[in-house]
Write a protein that binds this DNA or RNA. Structure first.
Length: 453
RNA sequence: GGAGAGGUGGCAGAGUGGUCGAAUGUACCUGACUCGAAAUCAGGCGUAGCGUUUACGCUACCGUGGGUUCGAAUCCCACCCUCUCCGCCA
């Protein structure tokens, strides 16, 4: 969420910066809502203040026992009682509209983010390693995995459906080895605290990190039946009536499957005021991620690239506002370390304004080399959200003056485990269909050096 | 799942319809005393929004949402959460 003050004081320049990422801010509507809010709120608060002072007078009159005066003042209050009720309703409505309006506005890009419309305008920052060369015809990870008997999409489809996968034997172990290796590296070498978090979260958490209200279609929703007593049912019961069928109505309260560990981990600080000395906070979590992939029919349908369920090791930093860009570079480096240790060629790109996610102020993607596709594919995305998520979450710290101030939040994949597995299979494949196990993973594979049939 | 207790400021903890945004303690800040510190004494000390924007004024907030009332932390209803006991359980 953006700072409402910035929108009030400097609407045009906010609109301009948002336009650079392809978002057309409806300034006319905002101005209208603001004008209405100002008027309604002003009137409402004035009448509330009248009511409060009159009510106090009633109290004082009663204390003196002056019943006549009491009646007089009550008559005065009665005069504007209805108007006040109406204003309170009107105020709630306009405040709600304003909140809704604000909650779907994306973050403003950092000044250094290159302008652009799409993926094509992203800027390559660096290339590390050189694309793997082969003396034979390369196979993609599907052929390799199926050839080894460890990757089985047919059975996964039978069990669940399209866009699920099933790993067996050494490949399943390799998948686990990757996650373990990443976790160990980030905790032992990079100073992150390992966390184990809920995979189902409430709507409030999804709102906090920005997935809701705008991107509900990308999520898997898990409704849970809840029942609330209908209006008046409780009162009737108190009068001796037995609860009737229909006294309760179903209320929808959903859980959501996390699309990334960013959601539960970042929300740890929601509605918290952390002390200055606790910063920076650095957390790592290995979780499954669930995405409905709505609107991506036909894209990456083959293989493990785009799945409804995949594992990811996620890095999250909660930092002082002045340190967030430093933090982003550091976090990016931590993610890169994994690829370097695995010996996988990759490149880092800085996303342009038009390709960034809703909540991000700046994003680096790391793309790994996939020989079978003869291209680099995204394997990590590292972003600085500045105070955008913190404002939604009311995540604050006490500054040097002792005043609460919004934190900055960062996160990045370190890395997506499924795609890393794909990259290892493809880059370490051999002519005979076997796959060499990268050295850093061997301790996690019981010393296995090669996976063959 | 059944029975009971409870959710108040950073923390602890009063408050059961009328100067209560909330006693008191503690933590924290300032000043006095001191060579300095501790102790002691005096004062200050919540968050958010709005209006003038320096001083100030108003409004909201006592788990959440409704209701009763001129007036609700306090009464009523629902929900959420925590704790204790019993049952069940990976």
């Amino acid at each position: 969420m953006l700072d409402i003050q910035a929108l009030r004081n400097d609407l045009d320049s906010v609109a301009k910066r948002l336009a650079s990422r392809g978002y057309d801010l409806n300034t006319a509507e905002l101005k209208e809502l603001e004008a209405e809010r100002k008027e309604v709120q002003g009137k409402k608060e004035y009448l509330q203040s009248q009511r409060n002072s009159k009510s106090k007078e009633i109290g004082q009159a009663k204390a003196k026992g002056d019943e006549k005066l009491v009646a007089e003042i009550m008559a005065e209050v009665a005069e504007f009682g209805d108007e006040l009720k109406q204003l309170e309703v009107a105020d709630a409505i306009v405040q709600g509209k304003l909140k809704e309006f604000l909650s779907v506005i994306p973050n403003m890009p950092h000044a250094s983010v290159p302008e652009g419309k799409s993926e094509a305008d992203n800027v390559e920052v660096r290339k590390v390693g050189t694309p793997t060369k082969f003396e034979f015809d390369v196979k993609d990870h599907v052929s390799i995995g199926e050839g080894l008997g460890g990757l089985d999409f047919e059975t996964a489809t039978k069990i669940a459906g399209a866009r699920f996968s099933l790993l067996k034997g050494p490949l399943a172990r390799l998948h686990r080895a990757l996650a373990q290796f990443m976790l160990d590296t980030h905790t032992d070498k990079h100073g992150y605290t390992e966390t184990y978090v809920p995979y189902l979260v409430n709507a409030e958490s999804m709102r906090g990190t920005g997935q809701l209200p705008k991107f509900e279609d990308d999520l898997f929703r898990v409704p849970r039946a809840k029942f609330e007593m209908k209006e008046g049912a409780a009162e009737r019961a108190l009068q001796g009536e037995i609860y009737q069928r229909g006294s309760f109505e179903a209320k929808e309260e959903n859980f959501y499957l996390i699309p990334t560990a960013e959601v539960p981990v970042t929300n740890m600080v929601r509605d918290e005021i952390v002390s200055l000395e606790k910063l920076p906070m650095k957390f790592v979590a290995h979780t499954p991620c669930f995405r409905s992939e709505a609107g991506s029919y036909g894209r990456d349908t083959r293989g493990m690239i785009r799945q409804h369920q995949f594992d990811k090791v996620e890095l999250v930093q909660i930092v002082h506002p002045e340190k967030s860009y430093e933090g982003l570079e550091e976090l990016l480096g931590h993610a890169e370390t994994i690829l370097k240790k695995l010996g996988l060629p990759y490149r880092v790109v800085k996303l342009c304004t038009g390709d960034m996610g809703f909540s991000a102020a700046m994003t680096y993607d790391i793309e790994v080399w996939l020989p079978a596709q003869n291209t680099y594919r995204e394997i990590s995305s590292c972003s600085n959200f500045e105070s955008f998520q913190a404002r939604r979450m009311q995540a604050r710290f006490r500054n040097a003056q002792g005043k609460p101030e919004l934190l900055h939040t960062l996160n990045g994949s370190g890395l997506a485990v499924g795609r890393t597995l794909v990259a290892v299979l493809e880059n370490y494949q051999q002519a005979d269909g076997s796959v060499i196990v990268p050295e850093v993973l061997r301790p996690y594979m019981g010393g296995m050096e090669k996976i063959s049939k």
